[in-house]
Simulated assay, not measured.
Amino acid sequence: MTVSETALPPDSGRLPGRGRRSVEALLLFVAAPLVHVTLFDVLGVFAPLAAVTTVGVLLLAITPGWRWRELIDLASLRGHGRLILGFTALAAAVIFALVFALIPQRVLGLPRYMPQTWALVMVFYPLVSVLGQELLFRPLFFRRYGDLFTGPVTLVIANAGAFSLTHAFYQNWVALTLTFLGGLVFAEAYRRTRSFPLVFLLHTFAGQLIFTSGLGVYFYHGAIPQ
């Protein structure tokens, strides 16, 4: 199977030219995160992320082959139960190992000391954070820009790298490393299955584990060095 078959919708011929899409991808997935890091003191956390998400969603809306009903295609989850359970177990092991190694005093800190805040994070994190990120980094990236890469391996690594880069404003190696590793899993899962609900759940469970375990201090804007 070629990358064109795995990365693009059947009617991909109506996509804009490669040059235009290359510029779009560089601006959205490289330039915007770098500007965010460089001008973080001026731009803050939320305005740049909201702007990039809005632009990305608009681009996805005009991308040939994309259908919004794919967001709720629960049938696409069939047969992936073992993947979800296996990934969640592995993610929990890695995340808790990092907590015990780096910040053992914060193990389960959020649910233990701020249970109401923890409950709100568990409920709203998937909707406020995961949904927008997954729309940009999976359907948009693969369907609109997938054929710009030479093969599946390059495509998946580039996707994970862009996903990690957008978290660079946290300014710590834990956030960059975990988002790159998680991005590899999410990207490959989407490349193989085209299931938005699958990658949404994988991303959600990973994030909820991070904030439950105590590792969320590395993904919290209040901890960004000044």
Rank of each mutant, 00 (worst) to 15 (best):
Q116S: 04
Q116Y: 09
T117E: 05
T117W: 01
T117I: 10
T117H: 02
W118Q: 14
W118V: 04
A119M: 03
A119L: 12
L120I: 05
L120R: 07
L120E: 03
L120F: 07
L120A: 10
L120K: 06
L120M: 11
V121Q: 14
V121M: 12
M122R: 02
M122Q: 14
M122T: 06
V123Q: 01
V123N: 00
V123E: 01
F124G: 02
F124E: 02
F124C: 08
Y125R: 07
Y125N: 13
P126R: 06
P126M: 11
P126E: 08
L127C: 08
V128T: 11
V128L: 13
V128C: 08
S129W: 12
S129C: 12
S129I: 11
S129H: 12
S129P: 00
V130Q: 08
V130N: 14
V130A: 13
V130G: 11
V130P: 04
G132P: 06
Q133P: 00
E134W: 01
E134F: 01
L135E: 02
L136M: 08
L136E: 00
L136Q: 01
L136H: 01
F137H: 00
R138T: 05
R138S: 03
R138L: 12
R138Q: 15
P139K: 09
L140S: 03
L140K: 01
L140V: 10
F141N: 00
F141D: 02
R143T: 04
R143A: 05
R143P: 01
R143N: 06
R144K: 12
R144L: 10
R144N: 00
R144Q: 02
Y145W: 03
Y145T: 00
L148Q: 09
L148D: 10
F149D: 02
F149M: 11
F149P: 00
G151D: 14
P152K: 14
V153Q: 09
V153E: 04
T154V: 13
L155G: 02
L155E: 03
L155P: 05
L155M: 15
V156L: 14
I157C: 12
I157E: 07
A158C: 12
A158M: 08
A158N: 07
A158F: 08
N159D: 14
A160Y: 00
A160E: 01
G161C: 06
A162M: 13
A162G: 15
F163I: 03
S164G: 03
S164D: 05
L165S: 05
L165W: 05
L165Y: 04
L165N: 09
L165E: 09
